[in-house]
């Protein structure tokens, strides 16, 4: 049985949770068996958030909540630091879609910061043998919708591309239904 392991990563406020729900519902509507786990800290905003997906065309066996090392198939990241955080789970064939621009991290602002000693995530990722497609989701969202808030939608399009889901209409329908319900402005 082929199990597809996928991670959507970003930071609080980027809509990882919403995107994960829409993707799961899309998979279910297309008769995939799917489980996912959201990982988020206590903060509402700006801390790292990620969703780990285990997806199969067949009924999934009993699986743990996390993706084991070396078994990550696809990684879609709305921030290059967050791509870097999960890169160690990759194997040779793993494909990554990664936002080019990183968001403020705050470690660079404190007096005791050692941020200067850490290479930029984009540089670190480029030094790896990983198959990365760089995306500017925020810019795409700004240009096409007039706001950066829809960056998660464009990341979602790469998710369904990764999963070879051709029914974009279904994804769109579910995504915009959820956006309508969302309480955040």
């Amino acid at each position: 049985m082929k199990i597809i392991n996928l991670i959507i990563a970003g930071i609080g406020g980027q809509g990882i949770n919403s995107l994960a729900k829409v993707l799961a519902e899309t998979c279910q509507a297309l008769n995939y068996d799917c489980q996912f786990t959201i990982h988020k800290g206590g903060a509402q905003s700006l801390g790292c958030v990620y969703a780990e997906f285990r997806i199969s065309k067949d009924k999934l066996p009993v699986l743990g909540q996390g993706i084991p090392k070396g078994q990550l198939d696809y990684l879609i990241a709305l921030d290059p630091w967050e791509a870097l955080r999960h890169a160690a789970l990759s194997h040779q064939e793993t494909r990554l879609w990664v936002e080019t621009e990183s968001q403020p991290f705050f470690m660079e602002r404190s007096k005791e910061s050692k941020a200067e000693q850490i290479d930029l995530p984009q540089n670190q990722l480029k030094k790896t043998p990983l198959n990365i497609q760089w995306r500017n989701y925020r810019e795409m969202s700004q240009q096409q919708t007039g706001s950066i808030k829809m960056a998660n939608y464009f990341a979602g399009l790469d998710c369904i591309k990764a999963l070879k889901i051709s029914d974009k209409t279904l994804f769109d329908k579910l995504f915009f239904q959820l956006i309508k319900k969302a309480r955040r402005f």
Binding site: Q44, Q92, F105
Partner: peptide
């Protein structure tokens, strides 16, 4: 069978903070 890549990466913890 360990197919994990051995990558040299340095990624610090990113806790949340106060919202804007």
């Amino acid at each position: 069978q360990n197919s994990a890549l051995s990558l040299d990466i340095n990624c610090p913890e990113r806790p949340g903070t106060f919202c804007e």
